[in-house]
Simulated assay, not measured.
Amino acid sequence: MNKTSALILFAHGARDPRWAGPFQRLQKMTQEASPDISVELAFLEFMSPALPELVRRLTEEGIRNITVTPIFLGQGGHVLRDLPVLLDQLRGEFPALALTLSTAVGEDETVLTAIRDYCLRQL
């Protein structure tokens, strides 16, 4: 089956490669739960692939619909300022691509509830 849709989990990135471990596990879990779409991981800085690099590759592979979901706890400066600029540049480069931005995962009530439950289990 040719996949035409992708979900990009977008994370900050860090110099220490171990930092990416939880994000890689999340990508794998998400891909296993949704085999009909391509689930990828991109980074803002320090790690690869960078978002523009990944979007270019996906479009070359025939992906026509991409949703970018920031794996950030809040809608801070990177999500509110840096990411929209990147997406606008990509929309200019790929006008036929449907490129959607989700809110940061930490803005979702179910995510906050899961984090709260985890914290309370630590007592």
Rank of each mutant, 00 (worst) to 15 (best):
N2T: 15
K3V: 11
S5C: 06
S5F: 00
L7H: 03
L7S: 03
I8V: 15
L9D: 00
L9W: 01
H12Y: 06
H12V: 13
P17S: 08
R18P: 00
R18C: 04
R18L: 07
W19F: 10
W19E: 01
G21I: 06
G21H: 09
F23E: 01
R25L: 14
L26R: 02
Q27F: 01
T30N: 02
T30Q: 03
S34E: 11
S34P: 01
S34I: 12
P35T: 13
P35F: 12
P35R: 14
D36K: 12
I37T: 06
S38N: 07
L41T: 01
F43M: 05
F43H: 04
L44I: 12
E45W: 10
S48N: 09
L51G: 00
L54P: 00
L54V: 11
L54H: 02
V55H: 00
V55S: 02
L58T: 06
L58C: 13
E60D: 11
E61V: 07
E61T: 12
G62Y: 08
R64M: 09
R64K: 15
R64Y: 06
T67F: 05
V68H: 00
T69L: 14
T69S: 11
I71L: 09
F72A: 02
L73N: 03
L73H: 01
G74H: 02
Q75R: 04
G77P: 01
H78V: 10
L80G: 05
R81E: 10
D82V: 09
P84A: 12
V85R: 11
L86P: 01
L87M: 13
D88I: 14
Q89R: 15
Q89Y: 09
L90H: 03
R91H: 06
R91I: 14
G92C: 10
G92S: 15
G92L: 08
E93L: 14
F94H: 12
F94Q: 05
P95L: 05
P95A: 06
A96S: 11
A96W: 06
L97S: 03
L99P: 04
T100R: 13
L101F: 08
L101R: 10
T103V: 14
G106K: 07
E107Q: 13
D108A: 15
D108L: 15
E109R: 09
T110M: 07
T110L: 12
A114G: 04
A114H: 05
I115K: 04
R116V: 15
R116D: 14
D117F: 11
Q122K: 08
L123I: 10
L123W: 05
L123F: 07
L123S: 09
L123G: 04
